[in-house]
Structure formats: structure tokens, C-alpha cells
Amino acid sequence: MTRNGILVDYQYCTGCYSCEVACQAEHELPLEQWGVKVMQNGPWPIKDENGEPTDRYVYDFIPAFTKICDLCADRLEKGKKPSCVFHCQAKCMKFGPVDELVGDLADKPQQYLWVPPCA
């Protein structure tokens, strides 16, 4: 069986939270339940060799999928993308068979591939 996953190009994730709410709305999740939750890293200044902060910052958002994510199985049956991927404003998520996404993963840095337990 082909495993499916989601490839996230987190270089362009801006932290808009559309994926989080798309998931909650799609599955009508109760509050404080997430199929995907956006984690924030930064901003924090990168320090130079003397330990002094520079004007360069790390500021990343990482959509973190949880084990209750089912890749929107109901939508997939109807030929639709998972709601988070479909509604992503930065268009930085891609759904597909894992073996294909692995190829895309090699194409550029700052990406990661999520494969849920249900896949």
C-alpha cells in the first residue's frame, strides 16, 4: 500500500494558522485539540563569534502534525486534498505519496516530510 504524507517547505511558513483552523473546522474538533499545530521558533538574534547579538534573526514557524491527523481521509476519498494543504496561504505544503515527496525533499533545503501513523 502506498503511504501518503505531507511535505512542508517551512522556509515559507509565515505563521498564519490557517492549517490549524482548517483542521479544526474540517473535523469539528473541540477546543484545545489539534491535528496540526503551528509551533513558533523565534525570533531570536543570531550571535556573532564574540557572543554579541547581530541583526540577523531566526524566525521560523513549523506546522507540527499530531497523531490525530488522518490526512483528511474523508476528503481524500472524494479526491480532495487535506484541508490544511488546500487552504495554506503560503502554499508551502504538498500532499502526496511518500516516495514522490522524498524526491521533492531532495530538491531544496528547509523542508520536512510528515508521515502520520494512519498512513
Binding site: 498564519c16 483552523v21 473546522a25 484541508s83 496561504q89
Partner: peptide, 24 residues
């Protein structure tokens, strides 16, 4: 029942922000 982005709309090309997604 629900709202989805319109993938064929040139303006947002399917994307939506949380305010539409939570519209129900």
C-alpha cells in the same frame, strides 16, 4: 454547512485565512 476556498479563483487560489475557516 461549511466554506472552502475556491481553487479556481485567481485572487486567493483556494487559500483562506482562519477567519473564513472558522466562519461556521
Amino acid at each position: 454547512i461549511k466554506v472552502e476556498g475556491d481553487p479556481d479563483d485567481p485572487y486567493n487560489r483556494g487559500a483562506l485565512c482562519p477567519r473564513c475557516l472558522a466562519f461556521k
